[in-house]
Amino acid sequence: MIRLTVNGETMQLYSTDNLKQLLESLHLGEKRVAVEVNREIIPQSLHQTTRIREGDRVEIVRAIGGG
């Protein structure tokens, strides 16, 4: 198992997980979101090939109401 931080929360995952699987496990696989890993934006086309590593800091954002 590896430990990582997602949107400020600590999580544990199997080390084989890629970013796409992480999003699916959070029920965000089909949602319009944007993702940063360690402050670097990972384009959607690279989610499947981006491995998640111990200590990664992941930010997942979406659009909400704002002025």
Partner: peptide, 20 residues
């Protein structure tokens, strides 16, 4: 039309409506 960018909830509310 303006909107803001914020963290998603991480699985707590999977059916949350999406502004987009």
């Amino acid at each position: 039309v303006t909107l803001a960018v914020r963290r998603t909830n991480i699985g707590q509310n999977p059916n949350e409506p999406n502004l987009l």
